[in-house]
Design a protein around this nucleic acid. Structure first.
Lengths: 249, 249
DNA sequence: CGTACAGTTGATGATCATCAATCCCTGTGG
DNA sequence: CCACAGGGATTGATGATCATCAACTGTACG
C-alpha cells in the first residue's frame, strides 16, 4: 500500500472503463424504485474520477488491515473482495462480500474496522477521505449518494443477520447462493451462479464450519436443487425449490 | 401516526430539554476519538429543532410498521425502542435496540424495512425526510453527522452479527448485557445495568429461544457473574469474568 | 380478583462443531 | 513432462448445545 498506480481515474482512462466510479443501490426515498439503480450522475462520476486513483489488485491481495489508519475509501470497478475480522478465539468472521459498484472502507475513529482482501483480480477507485469530505462541502449533492449507499450496506448487514440466525446449514447456504445469483444476474444467465470465494470463506460468512458447508452443498446437490460445477461455479437446477429454501426463514 | 403532537422542537420546549435533537457516535475520521461524541453543533441542533416535531409515545407503542411509507426519520431524545422484522416462518428477528441520541427510520424505496416499537415511554424528534434532504442541500455541513451516525449503526449491525455468530447462549447473553452496560454507563453505576426489554426480546435479538435465554441467565447467576434483580435490572457481580465471557468470541 | 402475558423448568431429539484421516486440485520446479 | 508440495475439500464418527414440546408458576394491570 506504499504507492498508488499513478493514474487518475478520469479522462484518458476512458478506454478500459467509459465512466468513472459507479455506485449502485436501492435509494431510500423514490417510491417504487425497488431495483438497485445508479446513484451518481455522469457529472458526479467525472468529478469523483478527477480526485480518484485507480488501483489494480491481483487476487488474494490484502487491500488494508483492520486497525490501520483509514485514509481512503474504495469503489470497486470490477472484481470481488471479502471484508472480515479475526476474533480472539481464532475464528474468522466475514462481514460482507463486495462486488462491482460497491463502496467499502468502513472506519471508526480514523482506523479501519475490518480487513479487506481480494478474491479475484480487482480494479477499484481509491478516494482520499479528506479530499472526499472537502468535495462534500463544495458540492452538497454529492454526499447523498454516499449516505444512500451506506444505508444499502446497512440493510445488507441486517439481511446477513437474518441468514446467520437460521439454524439449518442448507437454508443458510441457499441464501448465500441467492445473494450471489442476484448479484451476478446481469452478467450471466439466471441459473449459472459464480461463487468466487472458497468454501471456507462461505463458512466464515455463514457462521458455520467448513464441513457443514460441504455437507450442505452435497445436500443441495443430492436433492437436485443445485449443481456444483468446479470450485467457483454453481448452477441452480430447481429454481422453485431453491427459492422456497432461501425464503423459508 | 395520523397526527403529531403539535409542538415544535425548539424554543419554548427548552424546559424539558435544553437542546434540540442530539446524535451520538464515534466519528469515522478524527483519530483517537474512540469514545462516542456529540455529532451536532448547537447551531445544527437548533436548526433541526425548528424543522422537527416532538413526539411522545407510551411504552409498547408501534412507531411505524415495516412496509409503511417512510416519510420520517426519528431521533430519540429519551427512552428505548426495538426495531424488528417478522419472518415468514413466524419467527421474529430484532435487528437493533435504539436508545437516546440514536437515529432510526431506515427505509428502502420509500418504505420502512423494519417495524419499530417502544419498550419504554419514548420522547423523540420526528423529521420529515423531504424537509431533511432539503436541509442537507441548503446546509452542506449538516449531512455529514447523519452519514457518520449511519456508519455507526452499520458497525453495530456487524457487531450484532458477531454476537449471533457465537454458539454458546451464555456468551451471547453476556455480550448483550455488556452492550447495555456500555449504553447506560453514563446514567448509572457501572455494575447496575437496566434491561428494558423482555427475555423474549432478548431471545429474538440473540437468535435464541426464550428458554435458552432463561437458562443462560440462570447460568450467569449460578456462576456468580451476574445477578438478576427484578425483570428489568441486572447487576454485574464479577466484572472480570463477565468481560472475559463477553470478549471470548 | 381474575386474566393474559412473561417467565420457569424438565425431557427429548435434531443439528452442528469438532477431531481425524484422506483425497483432490493447482501451481511450481526439476 | 512429470513429480511434488500445499492448501482446499471431503468423509466419517462422536459429543455438545440448543430448539422444541409440554406443563406449570409468577406477575402486572385493569
Amino acid at each position: 500500500m506504499a504507492h498508488d498506480t499513478v493514474k487518475r481515474g478520469g479522462g484518458d482512462a476512458a478506454a478500459s472503463t467509459p465512466r468513472g466510479p459507479s455506485l449502485r443501490a436501492v435509494p431510500f426515498l423514490k417510491l417504487g424504485e425497488s431495483e438497485p439503480i445508479e446513484l451518481l450522475s455522469n457529472a458526479q462520476q467525472q468529478q469523483l474520477a478527477q480526485h480518484a486513483f485507480v488501483r489494480v489488485f491481483p487476487a488474494r491481495t490484502i487491500v488494508y488491515r483492520a486497525g490501520a489508519p483509514a485514509d481512503s475509501v474504495f469503489i470497486i470497478s470490477d472484481g470481488v473482495v471479502k471484508s472480515f475480522r479475526d476474533l480472539p478465539s481464532g475464528r474468522r468472521r466475514i462481514a460482507a462480500f463486495f462486488f462491482a459498484r460497491d463502496l467499502f472502507g468502513l472506519a471508526k475513529a480514523g482506523r479501519y474496522v475490518n480487513t479487506v482482501q481480494t478474491l479475484t483480480p480487482v480494479r477499484a477507485y481509491r478516494l482520499d477521505v479528506i479530499a472526499l469530505t472537502e468535495l462534500f462541502r463544495s458540492d452538497p449533492g454529492l454526499e447523498l449518494p454516499f449516505l444512500c449507499k451506506t444505508m444499502h450496506v446497512l440493510r445488507e448487514a441486517q439481511h446477513h443477520n437474518i441468514i446467520v440466525g437460521r439454524r439449518d446449514a442448507i437454508g443458510r447456504l441457499a441464501m448465500l447462493l441467492r445473494l450471489l445469483q442476484t448479484q451476478f444476474e446481469a452478467t450471466n444467465g439466471n441459473a449459472d451462479v459464480p461463487t468466487p470465494m472458497t468454501k471456507s470463506d462461505m463458512a466464515n460468512y455463514l457462521g458455520l464450519s467448513l464441513e457443514a458447508v460441504v455437507r450442505a452443498s452435497r445436500g443441495l446437490q443430492r436433492q437436485g436443487i443445485v449443481q456444483f460445477l468446479g470450485r467457483h461455479h454453481a448452477r441452480i437446477i430447481d429454481q422453485g425449490r431453491f427459492e422456497a429454501l432461501a425464503s423459508n426463514v
